[in-house]
Amino acid sequence: MNRMFAIASNTFKENLRDKILYNLVFFGLLLIGGSVLLGSLAIGEQGKIIKDLGLASINVFGILIAIFVGIGLVSKEIEKRTIYTIIAKPIPRYQFLLGRYSGLVLTLVVNIAIMTIGFFATLMLAGIGFDGGLLKAIAMIVLELLLIVAVAVMFSTFTTPTLSATFTLAIYVIGHMTEDLQVLANKLENPVISWTFNALYYGLPNLGYFNVKGEAVHGSPISMNYLLLTTSYGIAYTALLMIAASLIFQRRDFK
């Protein structure tokens, strides 16, 4: 357990010393701050625009960090051959993987926290005030990121960073359209294609569940029940992905 913690804290340190991360967070904050200007163009709707843009910025920059740091989490270690000395230490491979994962999750949480503070500060300054519903939406974003990092890590255990990025991005995009897949499956006559679309619908993560930004911005209620169910779904899916990643990683030869 301590060894896994050592890996996690080293991963966190690695991320902190990476300049790309600061750029992403900086642009995220810039966009959140800039929403005030855009909001002033729409009279009477300023609050909604700031909230909309703020949540979207947190989501997009979170996803960017999750994918681009996530794909390098394992493959960079292999490429730079730092993994040779790590695997040679008395730490099981799955613990290394979980440690790397936790380190990045910690990084993401800190980044989201910084952007959230920037977001609420912007809301205060624009005279809109605190809105607890937004926090629910941000919590769901964090949950989505947990899952996306797991997807990126899983791909990076067996393929190149470029392919991992492509696959993860594809899963992210399709994950937001799975409901369309089901609609399509029901409408199609051909049973083979219909079955395939249904399989994709049930197999791929439904990321639409994590999107409660609209409700939060418009002040619609988000039930505790829904949040709990979605949280369980996110954690279960992430766990499955990490188990798959561990199994693949365990069998790998580091030539």
Binding site: N2, R3, N10, Y84, T85, A88
Partner: peptide, 28 residues
């Protein structure tokens, strides 16, 4: 076991001390 790989690459963002501390922790 102590192991040194061929033409080793290590975490270049760590200082010598941090690096050895990290690896020591991996041994508990």
């Amino acid at each position: 076991i102590g192991f040194l790989p061929e033409s080793p690459f290590f975490y270049e963002y760590l200082t010598a001390e941090e690096f050895l501390t990290f690896y020591g922790q991996l041994f508990g």
